[in-house]
């Protein structure tokens, strides 16, 4: 147990990264929901739209947890200097650049399975950017401070999005049980 505790980042740092994941995943889902709202209003009643929103929020919470858990697990198995030390700001960089990369990837990925070259580009460029920003914030202290300040402010959304996600999760479970 102690080994695990030593390998994983500190709980407060994990929560800080979770805050960013929750913010990104929920905000993106809400954007998508609002984008579809005019068409949903044509044929769904308010209660049905609320249920669709609940599915999306529950899934966003699940996705945030998976992303954060994935990063924490990576921190545990990689050399501690790579990710575990300074997990809060490194995780922040991972999530933000990963989000932009995921957005670009979504935009380019349509009906055809991408070429190996495109897949590699979509993997290598974000990893290079992540590496660059981690190195930059490691060398240049003010950048790290700015990142942590932004992360701190974003974390406030945990208090809004997580309860919404939990309530939504129970709505989905309830509807599929009864």
């Amino acid at each position: 147990m102690q080994i695990l505790k030593n390998r994983f980042p500190h709980r407060s740092e994990i929560i800080a990264v979770l805050g960013v994941s929750v913010f990104v995943c929920h905000s993106w889902s809400i954007r998508d929901f609002l984008n579809d709202l005019p068409s949903l209003m044509l044929y769904f009643r308010l209660a049905e739209m609320a249920v669709i929103f609940a599915y999306m929020m529950a899934f966003a919470l699940l996705e945030s947890l998976i992303v954060t858990a994935g990063l924490a697990f990576a921190a545990a198995i990689l050399p501690s200097k790579w990710l575990r030390d300074g997990f809060a700001y490194k995780g922040f960089i991972f999530v933000i650049i990963g989000s932009i990369a995921a957005y670009v990837f979504q935009k380019n990925l349509r009906y055809e399975f991408p070429s190996t070259q495109m897949l590699m580009l979509n993997l290598v460029i974000p990893l290079a950017l992540i590496g660059f920003f981690i190195a930059a914030s490691h060398v240049w202290g003010p950048l790290q401070k700015v990142l942590l300040d932004i992360q701190d402010r974003i974390s406030i959304m945990l208090y809004v999005y997580v309860p919404i996600g939990i309530v939504s999760f129970f709505v989905v479970v309830f509807r599929n049980l009864f």
Binding site: C25, W28, S29, M56, F59, E63, A102, Y103, Q106
Partner: peptide, 10 residues
Amino acid sequence: GYDASLFLGP
């Protein structure tokens, strides 16, 4: 269009 799931969607 875009997936509402930013990471798992793609």
